[in-house]
Amino acid sequence: MNKIVIAITGASGSIYAKILLEKLLHAKEQWAELAVVMTENAKQVWQTELNNHDYRNLPVKFYSQQDFNAPFASGSGQYNTMIIIPCSMGTLGRIAGGISNDLISRAADVILKERRRLICVARDMPYNLIHIRNMETITLAGGIICPATPSFYSLPKSIEELAATVVDRALDLAGIDIKTFRWGQ
């Protein structure tokens, strides 16, 4: 059974994290544990973009960025999936550089060293060469870069439906069975 950690960084795109958490809570039968790490910047961005603090009401376990006693800070915790959504380029760079200076970068390091699934929903753009090389490094280490680039062929009718095209792709990559638009159906 899946043990999933979600990391929310301060990049713009709180809507992606909100929709992802809602969809995972609707798919509870597909995971045994769900943990969340949210940076202080992410909390500010959530308030700015979504005009609320609704993440506080979600029935999930939140961990502090400095809580290195969190179960997913060690491979023995056996978390098999980590989704960083949105993933700032600063976070991406620290992961690519092997700098485990907070719980997010430590958990990503653990996921990669254990050859488990790391999905980075990169939000910042445009990319400079440093970003591209960091993405390459993470990809070569076994991670998945999933840019927060929505698709339009499902004809989304709201910003939530548009954002869900990115979230659904990340959930597919995580192996979560969801009902979503499928090309050719």
Rank of each mutant, 00 (worst) to 15 (best):
I111R: 00
V110L: 01
Y63L: 02
R94Q: 13
I132C: 07
M89D: 03
K61S: 10
S64Y: 02
T139G: 07
V60L: 05
P86D: 08
C146R: 05
R133L: 07
G75L: 05
M82H: 04
G98A: 01
I145R: 04
D67C: 06
D102H: 08
Y153H: 12
D168R: 00
G143T: 11
T81Q: 10
G75Q: 03
I130E: 03
D102Y: 10
P86I: 05
T91Q: 00
L118W: 01
Y55T: 06
Q66V: 11
A107G: 14
N134P: 02
I130W: 04
D67E: 14
S158I: 09
R116L: 12
N134L: 02
M135Q: 06
I111F: 00
R117M: 14
G77A: 03
S100P: 04
N52F: 05
I138E: 03
S74I: 03
L129T: 14
L162M: 14
A164K: 08
D102W: 08
M125L: 15
R117K: 15
S64W: 00
R117L: 14
T137K: 15
N57V: 05
N57W: 05
L129I: 11
R106M: 10
T165H: 10
T91V: 02
P150I: 01
V167W: 09
M125P: 02
R115G: 05
N52G: 09
V121Q: 01
I85V: 15
I99D: 03
R106C: 06
I111E: 00
R115F: 08
G143L: 10
D102G: 07
R94T: 12
S64L: 06
T91L: 03
P150D: 02
R133T: 08
G77C: 05
S151Q: 09
A122W: 05
N57G: 11
V166T: 13
S105E: 14
S158Q: 07
E161D: 13
A164S: 15
L58A: 04
P59F: 03
I119F: 13
G77P: 05
I111D: 00
G143I: 11
S76V: 13
V121I: 06
L155I: 03
N57F: 13
V110T: 07
M82I: 06
A141H: 04
G98P: 01
F68G: 06
Y79D: 05
T139S: 14
T137V: 12
